[in-house]
Simulated assay, not measured.
Amino acid sequence: MKLPDNIEGLVKAQNDLDSTAFAAHFTTAATVSDEGSSYAGSAEIKQWIEGATQKYRMQLKPLDFEQTGSTAELTVEVSGTFPGSPAVLHYHLELDGPLIRSLRISG
């Protein structure tokens, strides 16, 4: 499956366990919603992904990607050191050009 460069970069950053590169794919005012919590802005997003990566060592395997205009959904198999690994998650994205304006993760 061919992913757009920005989404491919996001997946690569996560699989490289590189929270700085991961956060660089978001706008400065971006938001993330995951597991009932929300994070706003580059610093909070970087802190969130850094903590989650250290705790769970997540690896993403893209399964499906659909995009309509600035709205996209990436379906991934996430594996790591968490109960129930691997799990299929949906990344609901709002894009702003090559950057991500918002990300909501659901099961």
Score class of each variant (00 low, 15 high):
Met1Val: 01
Pro4Gln: 07
Asp5Val: 07
Asp5Lys: 08
Asp5Tyr: 08
Asn6Trp: 05
Asn6Ser: 14
Glu8Ile: 00
Glu8Gln: 14
Gly9Trp: 12
Gly9Asn: 14
Leu10Tyr: 13
Gln14Cys: 13
Asn15Cys: 09
Leu17Asn: 14
Leu17Trp: 15
Ser19His: 14
Ser19Leu: 05
Ser19Thr: 12
Thr20Asp: 15
Thr20Glu: 14
Phe22Trp: 15
Ala23Gln: 13
Ala24Thr: 09
His25Leu: 13
His25Lys: 15
Thr27Pro: 06
Thr27Tyr: 09
Thr28Phe: 09
Ala29Thr: 15
Ala29Val: 13
Thr31Trp: 01
Thr31Arg: 14
Thr31Gly: 13
Thr31His: 10
Val32Gly: 09
Ser33Ile: 13
Ser33Thr: 15
Ser33Lys: 15
Glu35Gly: 04
Gly36Thr: 05
Ser37Thr: 13
Ser38Thr: 15
Tyr39Phe: 15
Gly41Phe: 06
Gly41Leu: 10
Ser42Ile: 06
Ser42Gln: 12
Ala43Met: 06
Glu44Tyr: 00
Glu44Phe: 02
Glu44Asp: 15
Glu44Cys: 04
Ile45Thr: 10
Lys46Asp: 03
Gln47Asp: 13
Ile49Val: 13
Glu50Asn: 09
Gly51Gln: 01
Ala52Arg: 04
Thr53Pro: 01
Gln54Gly: 10
Lys55Met: 10
Lys55Leu: 06
Arg57Lys: 11
Met58Lys: 05
Gln59Asp: 02
Gln59Asn: 09
Leu60Arg: 06
Leu60Ser: 03
Lys61Ser: 11
Lys61Pro: 04
Pro62His: 09
Leu63Trp: 05
Leu63Lys: 12
Asp64His: 11
Phe65Asn: 03
Gln67Ile: 05
Gln67Ala: 11
Ser70Leu: 08
Thr71Glu: 10
Thr71Phe: 00
Thr71Arg: 11
Thr71Val: 04
Ala72Gln: 05
Glu73Asn: 10
Glu73Phe: 00
Leu74Cys: 09
Val76Ala: 07
Val76Trp: 13
Val76Ser: 09
Glu77Val: 04
Glu77Met: 08
Ser79Glu: 11
Phe82Asp: 02
Phe82Val: 03
Gly84Tyr: 12
Pro86Arg: 04
Pro86His: 02
Pro86Leu: 03
Ala87Gly: 06
Val88Ala: 03
Val88Pro: 06
Leu89Phe: 12
Leu89Thr: 01
Tyr91Glu: 03
Tyr91Gln: 03
Tyr91Lys: 01
His92Cys: 00
Asp96Ser: 05
Asp96Trp: 00
Pro98Ile: 01
Pro98Ser: 05
Leu99Asn: 05
Ser102Pro: 03
Leu103His: 07
Arg104Ser: 08
Ser106Phe: 07
Gly107Thr: 03
